[in-house]
């Protein structure tokens, strides 16, 4: 593959242009993917951070969790049969701080479980983003639907729901605020979750999609990500096609002197591999740097798993694009090249 490398060294500008385009497209893809993940965390970290398991909603809720009301008798029986299970509810609401400033949040309450924060009556545990808004441990918060007061007991990291910080409160306080006795959801962790005849069951992924706006938001962003991936594949195909057209004479002569067509394909693949690897390495480095300097308010979350998965996809798409362009090389007749002038 020395010949492929030599060509790249001698024609730096040509390959630099292709590399910079791939770099820009892959960088943009990583950034949008980071935003998609960030928004996903912002929308549903409370649910996403739960272990794999099964969620159960009331059948009458028509798969909409905030319409779900699980019968207390059914809930009690499930919690007895499955000690690891927990029932929980989430509702959007607000609290007023000591300066009477209102803060939107998602109230969460649950039965006794290690998966959710334990709070006593009159206590509240908040997502840390509210600390940045000036709320401190020991502050007193109020809600106009609640007769008492909440004392801030502490903060937890990355507990968001529907783009709002989560507030863990006791079940009795929750029932007073929302005038409801039943819980919305039951969650049983583990792979072998049972089928419960009175309830609809959902996997983690299905339950996320039941959250209003989650699916629409993620679909839009993921569509952009995949479009960018497809565009990068097309760029490879088009760019290599144009380069191949310019090199018909060269390929023809190489074929005339006996070079195998597969060697010409290997040349194209090698060049594609080098360009993509360098472009992706730069994109990964820059996107990781971006995640460190991204503004506080920007929901940006780019994991190495996502980066590696997208990089592998870029490689595959690049390979397909370069191979498609290579089919014209297969059809080049050596004689054509000999009849052409100097290369």
């Amino acid at each position: 593959m020395k010949i492929a490398w030599k060509e790249m060294k001698k024609n730096k500008t040509r390959f630099l242009i292709l590399g910079s385009i791939i770099f820009l497209v892959s960088f943009l893809t990583f950034i949008i993917s980071g935003l998609a993940n960030g928004l996903s965390q912002d929308n549903a970290a409370l649910i996403k951070d739960l272990p794999q398991g099964q969620f159960y909603l009331d059948k009458d809720a028509d798969k909409t969790y905030n319409l779900s009301k699980i019968d207390e008798g059914v809930q009690q029986q499930i919690l007895i049969d499955h000690p690891e299970a927990t029932a929980f509810s989430v509702q959007m609401g607000f609290v007023n701080d000591e300066d009477d400033k209102q803060h939107s949040l998602a109230f969460v309450t649950s039965t006794d479980s290690a998966l959710f924060e334990k709070v006593k009556e009159g206590e509240i545990v908040l997502d840390r983003s509210l600390q940045e808004d000036g709320i401190q441990v020991g502050d007193v918060l109020t809600n106009n639907q609640f007769s008492g007061e909440f004392i801030v007991k502490g903060f937890v990291d990355q507990q968001k729901y529907s783009h709002a910080p989560v507030a863990f409160i006791d079940m009795t306080n929750y029932q007073e605020i929302y005038r409801v006795m039943e819980m919305q959801t039951i969650f049983i962790p583990g792979k072998d979750a049972p089928t419960l005849s009175a309830l609809d069951s959902f996997s983690n992924k299905e339950f996320l999609n039941a959250i209003p706006s989650y699916n629409a938001e993620q679909m839009s962003l993921n569509m952009i990500v995949w479009f960018l991936v497809i565009i990068s594949g097309m760029l490879f195909a088009i760019f290599f096609y144009m380069m191949n057209v310019q090199k018909i004479g060269l390929y023809g002569i190489l074929k005339a002197i006996g070079m195998k067509t597969i060697s010409l394909f290997k040349m194209i693949w090698y060049q594609m591999l080098v360009i993509t690897a360098i472009s992706l390495a730069l994109s990964i480095a820059l996107s990781q740097a971006f995640s460190l300097i991204a503004p506080e308010g920007m929901p940006f979350h780019l994991t190495m798993d996502t980066v590696l998965m997208l990089s592998a996809v870029f490689m595959v798409v690049g390979f397909i694009g370069a191979t498609i362009s290579g089919f014209q090389v297969k059809n080049i007749e050596p004689l054509q090249a000999i009849q052409q002038g100097e290369m």
Binding site: K6, K9, N11, I253, A256, I257, I338, E342, M343
Partner: peptide, 19 residues
């Protein structure tokens, strides 16, 4: 056969420009 037993000289030298 072209690769092993034949040699070619063309009207234009047709050398590979980047080698």
């Amino acid at each position: 056969i072209r690769a092993t037993d034949f040699g070619f000289v063309f009207q234009s030298s047709h050398l590979v420009p980047f080698l």
